[in-house]
Amino acid sequence: MSVMDHHDGVATEAGVRLSEASAGDYFALLKPRVMSLVVFTALAGLVLAPGHINPAIGLIAILCIAVGAGASGALNMWYDADIDAVMSRTATRPIPAGKVMPEEALAFGITLSAFSVAILGLAVNWISAGLLAFTIFFYAVVYTMWLKRSTPQNIVIGGAAGAFPPMIGWACVTGGVSIESIVLFLIIFLWTPAHFWALALFKMRDYGAVGVPMLPNVSGEATTKRQIALYAVLTALTGVVPVVIGLSSVWYGAASLCLGLAFVWYAAGVLRMADGDERMLPAKKLFAFSIMYLFVIFLALMVDHLAIAYGLTQGGLL
């Protein structure tokens, strides 16, 4: 005869713990805000790629990329549950909150990873599926399990995981990788450090409490602010490269130049910020703007591409 106890949203029967997680708790494991940006940039790669893809196949491709990104998030939350419980920003996530058991999150992440890669390969092509599999592996293993807790350059190297989606979208249409898709990759790759180090500046205490070697904690605020400014400049410069290689028109070039200058301006505000400033307003403003920057850059690329396709404007400088 079994004994059933209930505590903290978890049922225990004969020593076996079963979570009472809702569908919303499992959805939260997928990091939906991060996933939405991944889906958007992957869609941009799919739209910008030369050639044609059946709309139904394109929808399957985007869904697979979304599920793969969500699987990465679930695996990340499974591995980082110990530090998530300590950090104020992550303490309410499903695992530290006791809503989902760690082993359930692990099984969920592995299952979604396998299904997303397999379906993308079978329905679209195996080049894009291989890139998706590598992206999941890079985020869950290389970044989460290795880089995040071992080096202050974790975000620089690990940022590659978040930069692959437009390349995957491009490969879904073309079956390969090209200079254009590499440029799309670089825009996100170079954007990532300034974006995350701005967050790290005003979350230094959280990262310090769990021993994650973020750059502000290891090298100090002054070094971090200089690195943010450097990467902001590199991001702004890379943002106009699509015009140079003929992927977009001068109209996009003008928009990306304005956005890039604004990015550098916000980064300059961080550079001028006094060390030890507890309010960290310039860093918070840069973090918020950086999210909008990436969204608008890729939106502008897609709008410009459609304008070129319908003869409303002409391609780039080459």
Results as ranks from 00 to 15, higher is better:
Val218Glu: 11
Met87Leu: 07
Gly260Trp: 09
Phe137Gln: 09
Val241Ala: 00
Ile127Val: 15
Ala194Ser: 15
Leu286Thr: 01
Met87Val: 09
Leu247Glu: 00
Arg149Glu: 05
Ala61Ile: 08
Asp25His: 14
Phe185Thr: 06
Tyr79Cys: 01
Gly260Glu: 04
Val142Tyr: 14
Ala74Leu: 03
Leu63Ile: 15
Ser219His: 14
Gly70Ile: 08
Asp80Leu: 03
Leu281Cys: 02
Asn76His: 02
Ala307Arg: 10
Gly130Phe: 14
Ala129Glu: 04
Ile297Ser: 10
Leu215Gln: 09
Ala44Pro: 11
Pro96Val: 06
Met280Pro: 00
Pro193Ser: 09
Arg226His: 14
Thr192Asp: 03
Lys203Asp: 03
Thr111Phe: 15
Gly98Arg: 10
Leu201Tyr: 01
Pro242Cys: 06
Ile53Trp: 03
Ser248Met: 02
Ala171Arg: 02
Pro152Ser: 13
Ala140Leu: 12
Leu75Arg: 01
Ala309Lys: 13
Arg93Asp: 02
Arg17Met: 14
Ala200Pro: 00
Leu184Trp: 00
Pro242Met: 06
Tyr293Phe: 15
Arg205Thr: 12
Met280Cys: 11
Lys99Gln: 11
Ile95Tyr: 00
Leu199Ser: 03
Leu147Arg: 14
Leu132Thr: 03
Ala140Cys: 11
Phe138Cys: 13
Ser178Tyr: 09
Tyr293Met: 04
Met214Arg: 00
Ile157Trp: 14
Ser290Asn: 13
Phe295Leu: 11
Leu257Ser: 08
Thr135Asp: 11
Leu234Asp: 10
Ala160Gln: 04
Trp78Ala: 09
Pro282Glu: 07
Val117Glu: 01
Ala85Ile: 02
Leu312His: 06
Tyr79Ile: 08
Met77Asn: 07
Ala300Val: 09
Val3Met: 03
Cys258Phe: 05
Met1Leu: 13
Arg272Asp: 05
Pro193Gly: 10
Ala309Gly: 01
Met1Trp: 06
Ala307Ile: 02
Gly130Ile: 14
Leu30Thr: 15
Gly253Thr: 06
Trp265Met: 07
Gly73His: 00
Trp126His: 15
Val183Pro: 06
Thr238Arg: 01
Ala140Ser: 15
Met35Val: 12
Ala222Leu: 15
Pro242Lys: 10
Asn54Phe: 01
Ala81Glu: 13
Ala97His: 08
Ile83Pro: 10
Ile60Lys: 02
Gly311Lys: 02
Val47Phe: 11
Pro50Asn: 08
Ala107Trp: 12
Ala255Val: 14
Ala14Met: 07
Ile119Phe: 12
Ala21Phe: 13
Leu271Asn: 06
Lys285Ile: 04
Thr41Gln: 10
Ala283Leu: 11
Thr135Ile: 10
Asp275Lys: 05
